[in-house]
Design a protein around this nucleic acid. Sequence first.
DNA 1: GAGTGGTCTAGACCACGAG
DNA 2: TCGTGGTCTAGACCACTCA
Lengths: 243, 243
Amino acid sequence: MPSRRQTIADDIRTQIAAGQLKAGERLPSETILASQYGVSTSTLRSALALLQSEGLVEKTHGKGNFVARASQRHTYAGGIRMPFEASQVGPTLRVTVRTTRLPAQGRLIPLMQVPANTQLTQFLCIHNEGNSPHSLARIYVPCDLPPNGPPCESPSCRASGTQPAGPCPPLAEIRERLTARLPTHDEAEVLRISSTLAVLDITRVAIDSTGRVVEAALLVLPSHRTDAYFVTRAVPAESRSEG
Amino acid sequence: MPSRRQTIADDIRTQIAAGQLKAGERLPSETILASQYGVSTSTLRSALALLQSEGLVEKTHGKGNFVARASQRHTYAGGIRMPFEASQVGPTLRVTVRTTRLPAQGRLIPLMQVPANTQLTQFLCIHNEGNSPHSLARIYVPCDLPPNGPPCESPSCRASGTQPAGPCPPLAEIRERLTARLPTHDEAEVLRISSTLAVLDITRVAIDSTGRVVEAALLVLPSHRTDAYFVTRAVPAESRSEG
DNA sequence: GAGTGGTCTAGACCACGAG
DNA sequence: TCGTGGTCTAGACCACTCA
């Protein structure tokens, strides 16, 4: 038997699909909706959480619930991309970067394949779309690596974080591990998202042709606004590399 | 200011990391934990939901909350894989397949790049680990395609669903789009997971060397037990294709 | 049947946004 | 200041597991 939250979510979803609720339109307040459906506000909120996780509804504290505009959705492009392919999908993002140095600790040691306490440069990147933050990236490179500026400061950095290729030794491989989880307190605060809504957690490692790890990136993207997209071509690749 | 749920989650997370709570161990009941922390059961449950989304805690209705064993985690391998690479990661899975025919509708039309109502074969695959279901895959192929059995029936099908390559025209490209969302009622029921816990939603399209879509797969994986993993090599690939 | 988690209620109180 | 969503409470009742 479907739960009430599912029934309510289905009803609103149908109204959105049918165009009875238009993109950008504000829904009645949660109190009103709850009484309309004859449920408590908690139940109604959990129904809205379903729609929010599907990207159909956007909530704003103090303002209300809104039918999402399709354009709100971003695409994280995985794998190795040419610079010009970088920001072709999704709205434009403005990046703020904070650079620090720190010794390799914990997860970073196996990720970067360096001894403990190796000096790393950390780039803490926050991508903003207008006023509102969109995604969070912590990017690490060995301190002795970047010759002409870190990858993250490139204007062609991607929705996710960065353009990892550089002029130095050519990039050979990208490994990306992806899962979803609820955000930490800090992440929810920085991204200004509900702490009940899952984020995509992407760990990306870039390896150059000498086998060296030249970058590790820890990315946090709000799942209700983000897709990750991967294209893999078969091995005997045509010479389309410069296309 | 961190919320109570975060404080509680942090405390239990620390206990797990420190080994005070061992893998497989059962936590006290939610009622007891709630009174220990001086919160309501709702708040305590939302704290456990955080840990569950991180894969640190597994809940079983009627039994209790358990510290997860690391081995519970599966890996979905994205991109094009050789058959022998298929099921090398994660525990072994048993697959049940239900085959039906249906005309192309809705999302499937643009996905498979076919006219509406084109006959498709659907494979509804459920992957089981022991008794408990793990993942759900709906795989579509054009009806006129499979010459010697659908890809899904291959014994080398992957954690996710299938081994899309076949002997026919060679596979040229895999496109995978990935996001996270809360499960539908049906998905939560089939996978026997909490409807408050996000799933990974993967849409995979396989294209052969003639440009034809030979497979579309809609995959649903519980995010708290699943990583997706993608490896992309640079374009002038070494001849490691038979390795 | 005893004990567990799952869903849901009917509130209280706080934090945010806009006028 | 007012209306909104966010967090939290203290329960009730149901569904599942196991003895």
